[in-house]
């Protein structure tokens, strides 16, 4: 099932949750919608599910107009952040719900429903919990049951709204791997919303980065990390050093210091220089574009994180390998291995 979204706009009062969104999701893909809270990612997901309606724009499934159908007819599996399990039903009845509410003409007989639920509970590896109530389960178990319930109706699309957002870090990591392998098994077109970049980069085939109701970049996980299209993406994904610079006559200046950096093809004026923390190479004073004094150093596993006061007055944090130890008070040169300049 392919999903196509065209020029989608949704306003809540004067706040534009979606401000002209275009997106195409390929058949069998696992797509992540990544963005800070308020970026419109959940609204987009709810509109695709039919739980919200856009002010204008189009949503099509395999070329069919999805907006002409209600949530009930769309055959979309939706997994909620807070699970939304039916609290008065057992795990078994929760999973069976979608099969039991089908119109009488197409409803399966009891034995078929039981077999199907059993199969789904096996798939999420929780068949031993079938007689429990949701309140007796842990968060991770509830979310897996919610997923089994959504899969019971054999959805054409699976939508997951911050599926691991309410879980603790360790369970979250396990479930991430599990979702990845589950998707390899069942291949249903899936979209999941997250504000956790690690989650998006680890799980998804493609990542859609959103901010303020607009799509900033669509690309593979490597793509959005290595070639961020906008200043927002560079700042949001991975830790970045951001320095305000001036561009004029082909030269780059930080304060009154001229930097030995190329700036071809970038309009003159105020711009921002983005460098990943680990892309700042440490050398002897005078060896790079920047010079600064180390303020203090802390070790984080394989790297040492140093706070460096640049001679221009800015203070930045860099991650350097631990083979050459830095000490507070050292004067060092810094050379950006890779960098990006964005206007503004």
């Amino acid at each position: 099932m392919t999903i196509e979204v065209k020029n989608l706009v949704k306003k809540f009062g004067s706040f534009a949750a979606l401000d002209g969104v275009d997106l195409k999701v390929n058949d069998g893909e696992l797509l992540a919608l990544l963005g800070p809270s308020g970026s419109g990612k959940t609204t987009l997901l709810r509109i695709i599910a039919g739980l919200d309606w856009p002010d204008s724009g189009e949503v099509t499934f395999n070329g069919e107009d999805a907006l002409a159908q209600g949530a009930r007819e769309r055959h979309v599996g939706f997994v909620f952040q807070h699970y939304a399990l039916f609290r008065h039903m057992t795990v078994f009845e929760n999973v069976a719900f979608g099969l039991r509410v089908q119109p009488r003409a197409v409803r399966k007989d009891e034995a078929t429903i039981r077999a199907r639920v059993k199969e789904l509970l096996d798939l999420v590896q929780l068949d031993w919990l079938s007689d429990r109530y949701p309140s007796q389960l842990s968060g991770g178990q509830r979310q897996r049951i919610a997923l089994a319930r959504a899969l019971a109706i054999e959805p054409r699309i699976l939508l997951l709204d911050e599926p691991f957002g309410a879980l603790d870090a360790k369970v979250r990591k396990e479930l991430r791997k599990w979702l990845r392998s589950l998707h390899n098994e069942i291949h249903v077109t899936s979209i999941f919303v997250t504000h956790d970049q690690e989650e998006a980069l680890e799980v998804a085939n493609r990542v859609v980065v959103m901010d303020k109701g607009r799509i900033e970049q669509i690309g593979s996980p490597d793509d959005v990390y290595d070639n961020p299209a906008t200043a927002f993406v560079h700042g949001f994904i991975g830790e970045s050093i951001v320095l305000p610079i001036q561009i004029g006559n082909g030269a780059v200046r930080l304060g009154d210091r001229q930097l030995d950096l190329a700036a071809e093809g970038i309009a003159p004026g105020a711009s921002k220089l983005f460098v990943r923390r680990h892309d700042m190479l440490v050398g002897p004073p005078g060896s790079g574009a920047f010079e600064g004094a180390v303020q203090h150093v802390r070790n984080f596993g394989p790297v040492q994180r140093a706070e460096v006061a640049l001679s221009g007055g800015e203070t930045i944090e860099i991650d350097a390998p631990r083979d050459k130890e830095l000490r507070a008070g050292d004067t060092i040169g810094l050379k950006p291995r890779r960098y990006r300049i964005f206007a503004g």
């Binding site: 599910a49 039919g50 739980l51 209600g70 949530a71 009930r72 769309r74 055959h75 979309v76 599996g77 939706f78 909620f80 807070h82 939304a84 399990l85 039916f86 609290r87 719900f97 979608g98 509410v101 089908q102 919610a146 319930r149 959504a150 019971a152 109706i153």
Partner: peptide
């Protein structure tokens, strides 16, 4: 309203 939303997306009238 989440449980209701879940029910409707599972096909309940």
């Amino acid at each position: 309203t989440q449980e209701e939303e879940a029910a409707i997306s599972l096909g309940a009238s």
